[in-house]
């Protein structure tokens, strides 16, 4: 899909969310999970959200679906304000945006068979169907995820991958426009993982958009079109998946991620921080919680900034997105410098 023809499905502006807070008799512990994020998801695209655990990606996914509260900001789904919607309107919306949870059996009830669970979903989301229609639809959906033969099983006799597929089949029953998939392959072994990736690809139709939350760059590059990199509650880079590791400039943190996933093509990146120094700083508990830094969230770890001698600016001023190409921007002062010189 070309940039010109994409239409916005979800639009998040100025999103802020902090965890913890003040009780009457309790010390304040504030942890900024999402720190001023703007995000767009376009109709029918596959966009990935990557970042280390604790970077706020799951929270962002939940915020977009109003599965958690939001401090400030606006989320619009198909033009409707999600956080202002009445509970009735919200439930109607929920049909169109669904979430695959990291915990594969989160919404499976142990005493129900797969068919019964499908029936429950279909009764909710396809009230126009009668019992036979639901049964047929259930079998069709289970067929699409390759589980038609297991309709009479209960979750206990299903494998982790199968449970996740049941979850997917239930989600498909709602005919959603957006699926937020939180670590859809975590906890699965390599072969099943591959299966899951293939399944996600096959289920994709032109009207369905995916927001893929993952720290697995390999997976992300295989199925997504656009990648958003998140660190400590901020999105610091947007890059077309095909450009990952090939673009002339990446955020130093994205580099770190790519190096970890072996995605770097050696010798192409003059901006690459040297390997020994990347991520060498020991874990500091103070990193968790606390208020967000005034400057770049990566400033304290950044080798590139140190080399360029711009660290004082990095840690005091918040970097703005610097456009580097179609669907590619980086929130980094080093990119500004590069743009100016190059």
């Amino acid at each position: 899909m070309t940039v010109a023809e994409r239409r916005t499905l979800v639009e998040g502006r100025g999103l802020m969310k902090t965890f913890g807070g003040a009780g009457l008799l309790r010390r304040k512990t504030i942890n900024r999970a999402i720190d001023g994020v703007d995000i767009d998801i376009f109709k029918g695209e596959v966009v990935a959200l990557i970042g280390e655990s604790g970077s706020g990606k799951t929270t962002l996914g939940k915020v977009l679906l109003r599965l958690t509260t939001l401090d400030t900001g606006v989320v619009r789904f198909d033009g409707q304000d999600v956080f202002r919607a009445s509970s009735r309107a919200l439930r109607a919306m929920r049909r169109e945006f669904q979430m695959v949870f990291q915990n594969q059996s989160a919404n499976l009830h142990p005493k129900m068979t797969v068919r019964e669970m499908m029936d429950e979903s279909l009764r909710l989301h396809r009230p126009e169907l009668d019992a036979t229609g639901r049964a047929a639809q259930a079998l069709e959906l289970l067929g699409r995820v390759g589980l038609a033969a297991r309709a009479e099983q209960r979750p206990a006799s299903l494998s982790g991958g199968e449970r996740r597929r049941v979850g997917l089949a239930r989600i498909l029953a709602t005919r959603p426009k957006l699926i937020v998939a939180d670590e859809p392959t975590s906890g699965l072994d390599a072969a099943i993982k591959q299966q899951m990736v293939e399944l996600l690809k096959t289920l994709k139709d032109p009207d369905l958009a995916y927001l893929l939350i993952s720290h697995d760059l390999g997976l992300v590059r295989k199925i997504s079109e656009r990648v958003l990199v998140m660190l400590k509650g901020r999105i610091i880079e947007e890059v077309p998946a095909a450009e990952l590791g090939r673009a002339p400039f990446h955020h130093p943190y994205t580099h770190k991620l790519m190096r970890a996933a072996d995605l770097l093509e050696e010798g192409r990146h003059s901006t690459a921080p040297d390997a020994a120094a990347a991520g060498a700083r020991p874990f500091d508990p103070a990193d968790r919680g606390g208020s967000s830094p005034a400057g770049c969230v990566h400033a304290a770890d950044c080798q590139l900034g140190a080399r360029l001698g711009i660290l004082s600016r990095c840690s005091n001023e918040r970097p703005r997105p610097v456009p580097l190409g179609p669907s590619h921007w980086v929130a980094c002062f080093a990119a500004e410098a590069k743009e100016a010189t190059g």
Partner: peptide, 15 residues
């Protein structure tokens, strides 16, 4: 904490 509740809400059930 197992997301059991959230998963059902997310799926569109009335809370």
């Amino acid at each position: 904490s197992e997301d059991y509740i959230l998963a059902h809400i997310a799926h569109g059930f009335h809370s």
